[in-house]
Structures are given as structure tokens and as C-alpha cells.
């Protein structure tokens, strides 16, 4: 087993006119992991992916894939395949020809192409759809053709640009697990670009949060959620109450780490406030509570019991309590 990182990005920079799309990124991606690049629009995550695929040339820095410097290597010579956000299926070819395209460029023998295309289509559960045109497929089927086409060459690294963005919500959740299953089954390295933090958190073994062309934090989903390194990350991933502790220090406190009670709780931290708003979401309820002389805080309660009404009313005075280790102290 090769323990060398599959991708090594060193001081990578790319600007478009005035905009620094990628501003000095250092990143290592481990073989066999599902890595997510997470960020808002314009944070540079897609540019980073395009730099990896070779569609953009960096202004500075370099990318090593499997130990080889990729600077100046054209896209068609890189051991990398990409699944495009628009899927980019060739409309003038049927599904089988789309999937076979990459193998034909490698001059793989015809018989082998046929078996490998059939395997790839079976892998994404599209057996028997080889003769269809992309226009005759549903959105979910097209997504799977795009995946099969990118997987069939068995790339060292698969890049996925917003792979689930064009699917509807129900399909998205099923496909998410499907992608993870494929990645583990084929033992490939995936880099997924997404703006959807829930998607990134649930799929990735590690993720990087990007902001303005820089990486704000890299870590496992648990690390990023429970130990955010900055106010940006705390705020970007999930919901956080950010409390000013003075002396330039802040406390990032997740809504579910706070307990609500009528009487003063026996906890290290306790303050009282008035319920301003309640958002019932089925599985949980989100309370907005105005603390006396302080900020409005968000508290969530899991609805573990079937009831027809909320435990607290709007306008009621309640106590908020949490332990000292419930939040993350931040310096910036």
C-alpha cells in the first residue's frame, strides 16, 4: 500500500483579472479518501477543481498527482477524470458510446470496451440503457451515465463538480449514499466540490472549507463541526451562536448543545431569556430566545416525544443552560 498522498497541492494561485480565485492553497489528499471542497459561490472551489483537471493553468504553485508534477500537462494526459455539473453528456452519441468514449481514446480493444462499458453501466444500475440517447433519460439517469463515463477509465482520482446539485431532494439523498458506496467499493479517491454543507458533511471522510480563494479549515466533519477554527467556519457549517467573551475571544455554541428549562438549571452556564419565535421542523424545533441585555440565541430541541404542542410558548421566560465544554472558544 502506497502511503504517499495521491494529490499534493503547493502554494497554488490563480487569478482572473482582479479576482483572486485561488490564493495560495496548500493541500494534501490521501489515497482512497472522499474529500470534499466546501464553500459558497465564488470561493474558488470550482477553480481549484479545474486546476486539478488541467482546464486552467496556475499562476503560481504546483500540483502533484501521484508524485508527478502536473504543471503544463494537458487535460487529456492527466490520470484524472471529472464528472461535470452539467454532466456534459455528448448529445449525438448513445449512452454506451458516451461511456466508451474514454476507452476508445486509449485504443482499448473493441471486445474489452464492450465488457467494460457493460460493467460500468451495471455499476450505476443502468444495464440495458446503452442504446438510449441522453435526451431520452431522466435527470437521475443522466447523472449516473456521467458517473459511469468518468469511472470507466479507472482514474487515480475522480473529480466531481456539484454531483448532486441538479437532482431533486429525494433523489439526492439516495445518490449521496450511492456515491460513497461506489467510492469504497472501487477504492478510488474522490474529490467532491459542493456548496451544500450537509452533503459535504455526510459524504466526506475529510473536507476543506474555502473562503475567498483560501482554505479556512481542513478536517473531518466532526472536527469542523465541533471544533471550528474560526468564526467563519463556525458560522458557515451548521448554525452557531457566536458569543462575545471579551478580550477578543468568542464562543461558538451550537443550538443543540443548549438545554431549555423553566427553572434555573444546575449547569456551569445559565442565563434567562424570552422566547421570541419557534420554528417547528418536525424532527426538531428551533427556538429564538432574546437574552436579557444580550443577543438573540438559537436553541434546538429534538422532538423525541409525539405531542401536539411545543414544550414552551412564545413570550415565555425560560432558562438556557450549557456546560463549559459545550462550545468552542475562538480567537478570531
Amino acid at each position: 500500500m502506497n502511503s504517499q498522498p495521491i494529490v499534493r497541492i503547493e502554494k497554488l494561485a490563480k487569478r482572473f483579472g482582479e479576482i483572486e480565485a485561488v490564493a495560495g492553497v496548500d493541500l494534501e489528499i490521501v489515497r482512497g479518501e472522499l474529500f470534499a471542497l466546501l464553500g459558497g459561490s465564488g470561493c474558488g472551489k470550482t477553480t481549484l477543481l479545474r486546476l486539478l483537471a488541467g482546464f486552467e493553468t496556475p499562476d503560481a504553485g504546483r500540483i502533484l498527482i501521484d508524485g508527478q508534477d502536473m504543471t503544463g500537462v494537458s487535460p487529456h494526459l492527466r490520470p484524472v477524470n471529472m464528472m461535470f455539473q452539467s454532466y456534459a453528456l455528448f448529445p449525438h452519441m448513445d449512452v454506451a458510446a458516451n461511456v466508451a468514449y474514454g476507452l476508445r481514446r486509449e485504443r482499448v480493444p473493441k471486445q474489452e470496451i464492450r465488457t467494460r462499458v457493460a460493467e460500468a453501466l451495471a455499476l450505476v444500475k443502468l444495464d440495458g440503457h446503452g442504446a438510449r440517447r441522453p435526451a431520452q433519460l431522466s435527470g437521475g439517469q443522466r447523472q449516473r451515465v456521467a458517473l459511469a463515463r468518468a469511472l470507466v477509465k479507472r482514474p487515480k482520482l475522480l473529480l466531481l463538480d456539484e454531483p448532486l446539485a441538479a437532482l431533486d431532494r429525494k433523489l439526492r439523498e439516495g445518490t449521496r449514499f450511492e456515491l460513497v458506496r461506489l467510492q469504497e467499493q472501487l477504492d478510488l479517491t474522490f474529490i467532491v466540490v459542493t456548496h451544500d454543507q450537509e452533503e459535504a458533511m455526510s459524504m466526506a471522510s475529510r473536507l476543506a472549507v474555502m473562503d475567498a480563494g483560501r482554505i479556512a479549515q481542513i478536517g473531518t466533519p466532526h472536527e469542523l463541526y465541533e471544533h471550528p477554527a474560526s468564526r467563519f467556519v463556525a458560522d458557515f457549517i451548521g448554525i452557531a451562536n457566536i458569543l462575545d467573551l471579551g478580550n477578543g475571544q468568542w464562543l461558538a455554541l451550537r443550538p443543540e448543545k443548549i438545554t431549555l428549562s423553566i427553572g434555573r438549571p444546575d449547569m456551569a452556564q445559565a442565563i434567562s431569556g424570552e422566547v421570541v419565535d419557534i420554528a417547528y421542523e418536525g424532527d426538531r424545533s428551533l427556538y429564538r430566545i432574546a437574552v436579557k441585555g444580550g443577543p438573540v440565541m438559537l436553541v434546538s430541541r429534538t422532538n423525541t416525544v409525539r405531542t401536539s404542542e411545543e414544550a414552551f410558548r412564545r413570550g415565555q421566560t425560560v432558562w438556557l443552560g450549557w456546560n463549559n465544554d459545550a462550545g468552542q472558544v475562538l480567537d478570531g
Binding site: 482546464f55 471529472m82 461535470f84 452539467s86 456534459a88 468514449y101 481514446r105 486509449e106
Partner: peptide
């Protein structure tokens, strides 16, 4: 992206 996909596939 169709042309990019083709190049990406070799």
C-alpha cells in the same frame, strides 16, 4: 463543457 469532457476523457 462538452469539449472539456472529451479532453478529460483523453
Amino acid at each position: 463543457s462538452l469539449e472539456e469532457a472529451a479532453m478529460d476523457l483523453g
